[in-house]
Structure formats: structure tokens, C-alpha cells
């Protein structure tokens, strides 16, 4: 048995911990730029993103309009930055909702098992069986389009995945001897869930959150593209792509710029998410 420990040590030793890599500076830098601009958009002297100047419509990028103007002559730079605000609010908040609800469901299922698990898994499966975009479309169509409703709809859609992550991790941790040890001292289920298991779930949940942000940003884009996302005139990346599609032949920048910004953001999030997942891998962090 001490030999298996030896083998573990060898495996650990042969996997050098992934260190800081210069290539990560690019995605991290981009994300920081997007976040900072989204937060400070009101104070950096941007033109009103909704102000129309029909004479100056579909202008290519120039010194006056750094990213050009759209179909209604609105400043693209301003709209991309204010759109980042929308995308980030939805992208950050919706998975938090999913993690809170799905995490609670998944933890209960993984910890209590038996009937609780059957019910939870059934609920998750039902939620997963609906085509997700159709569900979100129905949702916003009935409740009305607003930032809150879009976030709510996408948050509900992220519940099953979050619940699965929480359940799988809880199953793994709940069988560990330290959980048994907590029971032998008479700890309640609530105390075991919150004090023994939850701290071990936080790293994988955080990694999930990072990945979910990028998925939700794309989903929000798709909703807006279909005209059921954030209502006009509030800018969002998906809405901008939808608007720009009409003039793709004469002014391709109106669709391509928001698409490129979304692409870069999602890609950066995925890179950083992978890095975080590697860092929180218990076999590595145990070193």
C-alpha cells in the first residue's frame, strides 16, 4: 500500500505543474480590457451609443469613428463597448443563478442519493430534453424582452449542467473518509455539506463558471440575433451582428466587428478557463 503512494508520487513528480505562460497574457489582457471598458463606459467620453446620425450611416472606420458607424449612423465603438456591458452582465449573472440553484440540487442529489438523487436526475433530464434555445425563446417571448428576463432564461438553462458538475463532484467527495469522520463526531448533514464538501466543490464550480460565461455570451448573441434578446435600442453584440447582417455586402464591418469582438472574448475565456481547471485539479494542487 505504501507502494501505491510511491507510484502516486512518481506520477505527480512527472507532471510538472503548469506554470504561468506568456501566451496567457494575451487572453487575460483582452478580458481585462473588455471588463474595464464595460465598467467605465460612461466616463471615457464615448458618444451616446443610441444617438443616430443618418447622414453618417455605414461609414467605415476612420479617425472620427474609430470602428465606423452602423446602419443608423450610430458610433460602433461606443456600441461595442456598451454591448460588452450587456454581454458581461448576462454572461456573469446567468451562470451564477445556474450555479446557486443547480449547485444546491446537485449537492443534495450526490450527498443524499437514493430518492433525492432520482428526483434530481429526473428533473435535470427533463430540463435537458427541451431544446435549450427554443426554451429560452419561449421564455422571453412570454415574459417580455428585458435584460432581467434574458438573464433569467439563460440562467435557468444553465441549471442542469451546473447540477451535473455539482453532483459528480459531491459523489466523489462524499465517499471520502473525512466525511465519514465528520459523521462519527455527530456532525449534521447540513454541517457536512457546507463545511466539509462545499469547500472542495468551489474550485470545479469556479472553472465551470468561467466556461459557462462564454457559452452564455454566445447564447445571448443567438437570442439577440433572433430578435428575442435585449430589446433595442440597448446595444448587445448579438443584436449588432443581427443589424449588421442586412448590410453585409455594402458595409461588412457592421457585422464583422461585433462578431470578432465576441469571438476574441469567448476564446479568451476558454483559454483562461482551461488554465484555471488545470490549476484546481486536485492531483496538481496536492503537490
Amino acid at each position: 500500500m505504501s507502494a501505491s503512494a510511491a507510484k502516486g508520487a512518481v506520477v505527480a513528480a512527472t507532471q510538472p505543474r503548469r506554470r504561468w505562460h506568456w501566451a496567457l497574457a494575451l487572453p487575460l489582457g483582452w478580458l481585462m480590457l473588455v471588463v474595464v471598458l464595460a465598467i467605465t463606459a460612461d466616463w471615457i467620453g464615448l458618444p451616446d451609443p443610441s444617438a443616430q446620425e443618418l447622414i453618417l450611416r455605414r461609414k467605415p472606420p476612420s479617425a472620427e469613428f474609430l470602428l465606423g458607424t452602423d446602419n443608423l449612423g450610430r458610433d460602433m465603438l461606443s456600441r461595442v463597448i456598451y454591448g460588452a456591458r450587456t454581454s458581461l452582465i448576462v454572461g456573469i449573472c446567468a451562470p451564477i443563478l445556474g450555479l446557486l440553484v443547480g449547485g444546491a440540487i446537485g449537492m443534495s442529489a450526490g450527498y443524499f442519493r437514493g430518492k433525492v438523487d432520482m428526483l434530481a436526475v429526473g428533473f435535470i433530464d427533463i430540463l435537458l430534453a427541451f431544446p435549450s434555445l427554443v426554451l429560452a425563446l419561449t421564455f422571453t417571448a412570454y415574459l417580455g424582452q428585458s435584460l432581467f428576463n434574458v438573464t433569467l432564461a439563460l440562467g435557468i438553462l444553465s441549471i442542469p449542467a451546473a447540477a451535473r458538475v455539482a453532483r459528480a463532484n459531491t459523489l466523489a467527495w462524499a465517499n471520502r473518509d473525512f466525511v465519514l469522520a465528520a459523521r462519527t463526531i455527530g456532525a449534521s448533514d447540513w454541517r457536512i455539506l457546507t463545511r466539509e464538501i462545499l469547500p472542495n466543490l468551489l474550485p470545479p464550480m469556479f472553472a465551470f463558471w468561467l466556461v459557462a460565461i462564454s457559452v452564455i455570451i454566445v447564447a445571448e448573441g443567438a437570442l439577440s440575433f433572433l430578435g428575442l434578446g435585449i430589446p433595442a435600442p440597448q446595444p448587445s453584440w448579438g443584436g449588432m451582428i443581427a443589424d449588421g447582417r442586412e448590410a453585409l455586402d455594402v458595409a461588412p464591418h457592421t457585422a464583422l466587428i461585433p462578431a470578432a469582438v465576441m469571438f476574441a472574448t469567448v476564446l479568451s475565456l476558454n483559454f483562461v478557463g482551461d488554465m484555471v481547471r488545470n490549476m484546481v485539479d486536485p492531483r496538481r494542487s496536492a503537490l
Binding site: 505504501s2 507502494a3 503512494a5 510511491a6 507510484k7 508520487a9 512518481v10
Partner: peptide
């Protein structure tokens, strides 16, 4: 014992 290098040596 574990960490003595016996397995690593032979491997």
C-alpha cells in the same frame, strides 16, 4: 519505502 526510488529505478 515509498520515495526510496526502487520503482523509479527499475522503470
Amino acid at each position: 519505502e515509498s520515495g526510496s526510488g526502487k520503482s523509479v529505478l527499475v522503470r
